[in-house]
């Protein structure tokens, strides 16, 4: 049974890259453009994992992660945040909000898959 991964990013190109990579590895991928959209998608399906950007309009990444953890459907699922090297404090905030791990941008498809396999098995 293919696992479902939700990718949340306001940048279409990042979403496409994540989506393309994960679909290629056999995952089912849902896309959302910001946190609010993400929560809607999360409620509408069974999601096994979330990959989210931190800087997004409307509901930003940190707020989104907090809401995922408060939601019974997202309480224990892995959440990976996309961050940049310069955002050390954001990384801490994300972890405090309940993120499972992070990927530093820019990253390569293989790095993404490595992390996904690590937290999802």
């Amino acid at each position: 049974m293919a696992k479902t991964i939700l990718t949340v990013d306001d940048s279409a190109s990042v979403r496409q890259m994540v989506s393309f990579t994960l679909k290629g590895a056999g995952y089912t991928v849902l896309e959302a453009v910001d946190g609010e959209d993400g929560l809607t998608k999360l409620n509408g399906a069974t999601v096994d994992m979330v990959i989210t950007d931190l800087n997004m309009p409307k509901l930003d990444g940190i707020g989104f992660i907090k809401k995922i953890r408060a939601n019974p459907k997202g309480k224990f699922i892995p959440v990976i945040m996309l961050t940049t090297e310069s955002q050390a404090e954001k990384k801490q905030a994300g972890k405090a909000a309940g993120a499972t791990g992070w990927i530093v941008k820019p990253f390569k498809p293989e790095q993404l898959l490595d992390v996904v396999k690590k937290v999802l098995r």
């Binding site: 224990f76 892995p78 959440v79 309940g98 499972t100 937290v119």
Partner: peptide, 14 residues
């Protein structure tokens, strides 16, 4: 650890 979405058993498998 559970509420960060981490399954410690996966780490053991790693």
């Amino acid at each position: 650890v559970f509420s960060t979405g981490t399954n410690p058993l996966f780490l053991l498998e790693d």
